[in-house]
């Protein structure tokens, strides 16, 4: 059933380790962000298929991202990063330098500066035309020719639950609501979850969350229902550029390795894989990514570790502390028997 790597390290067969007999091959996502166009079809398909409620219609001012982050009501999240950095072929070797501020922040400052000089501090906004001194709304590349090129680049990345080999959420779940499926994915059983909220703090990626008004933990199921019917998950199905690829994990890892090689040959030297390594802190994730910058730029933890790794050490300290408490109690009574 379980091997010595059950808590940390690579696992040959994650479903078998969880007790499945003769499981199908482990499946997952390879999300190639270099060909993501930010259409958010994955977000929509996911919501539609899984009946995920809306998370509020917000304007976040974060480039084209109005979802914000993964959560109970967002199982796919497309991140948009605006950078002043030339694309691969033009790379002048600046990749080690800090990224510039996001365009939206720049716009915000221009708007704020305009408002400060305004007669009524912007109070008449919406009642008449006001020149805020906004930069143009023309998108980079709109002109089509070389004359319109800037050093702007736009990173887009569709984030999702990582379906870790060693899943922090699964390890800490006290009810057994979270379980490892025969496909090697991690799913919450909605009829079991009692909303204790431990998984929310157990996830090193900040993926799973408790739904307001519902009280249960919610996250991507990798479309468990569709998998059982032999279909691919809704987001991968809807992705028009195959930025989201679904398949057996071994196959995806091989494909991803070739893609990185190809990109490096093409001069996109910053391309790197994230979450593909079975020796990393979560034993490799079922959903992994090809990124064009450091993971933290996309809101991902750069070196995530499953908290369960330190399980033994933590209980050792707790045992010592329990011993100290017992000793204190004994000495409290034995210490002054005369009194």
């Amino acid at each position: 059933m379980s091997s010595r790597h059950s808590l940390f390290g690579p696992l040959e067969d994650v479903a078998a380790d969880a007790g499945h007999t003769d499981p199908p091959p482990r499946v997952g996502f390879f999300t190639d962000t270099s060909i993501c166009i930010g259409c958010k079809a994955c977000e929509v398909a996911c919501k539609e298929w899984n009946l995920v409620p809306d998370d509020g219609f917000n304007v976040l001012g974060m480039s084209f991202d109005n979802t914000g982050m993964l959560g109970a009501d967002s199982w796919r999240h497309v991140a948009f990063v605006e950078q002043a950095l030339p694309l691969g072929g033009q790379n002048p070797g600046l990749s080690g330098l800090p990224i510039g501020p996001s365009g939206s922040e720049e716009q915000a400052e221009v708007a704020a500066a305009g408002l400060r000089h305004d007669e009524r501090g912007g109070g008449e906004l919406g009642t008449g035309p006001v020149d805020l001194g906004m930069p143009s709304f023309q998108r980079p590349g709109d002109t089509g020719g070389a004359e319109g090129r800037t050093d702007f680049r736009w990173l887009m990345m569709s984030d999702v639950c990582k379906h870790c080999t060693h899943a922090g959420c699964l390890d800490v779940c006290p009810t057994g609501a979270l379980f490892r499926t025969e496909f090697g994915t991690v799913v919450v059983q909605q009829d079991i979850c009692n909303g204790c909220g431990y998984c929310v703090s157990g996830c090193p990626f900040g993926v799973i969350d408790r739904r307001h008004g519902d009280g249960r933990a919610q996250k991507c199921t990798l479309c468990y229902d569709r998998l059982r019917d032999g279909m691919e998950p809704a987001c991968a199905k809807a992705c028009p550029t195959d930025s989201i690829q679904f398949g057996p994990l071994d196959e995806l890892r091989e494909r991803a390795r070739l893609r990185v090689e190809q990109l490096h040959e093409d001069g996109v030297t910053e391309a790197r894989l994230y979450g593909d390594d079975p020796h990393d802190g979560v034993g490799g994730s079922g959903a992994f990514f090809l990124l064009l910058d450091d993971p933290e730029v996309y809101g991902l933890p750069p070196d995530p570790v499953v908290p369960t790794r330190d399980l033994g050490t933590m209980w050792k300290y707790a045992g010592m502390a329990a011993g100290v408490l017992a000793a204190a109690a004994v000495s409290a009574f034995a210490g002054g028997r005369g009194r």
Partner: peptide
């Protein structure tokens, strides 16, 4: 009272799970 679904508190007693300190604590 802190559970999202307090009426399901007894689901904690479905399993005994050494990897979950909350289960051990239960």
């Amino acid at each position: 009272a802190d559970l999202g679904r307090p009426e399901r508190f007894h689901h904690m007693l479905r399993v005994a799970k050494p990897t979950s300190p909350m289960s051990v604590g239960t």
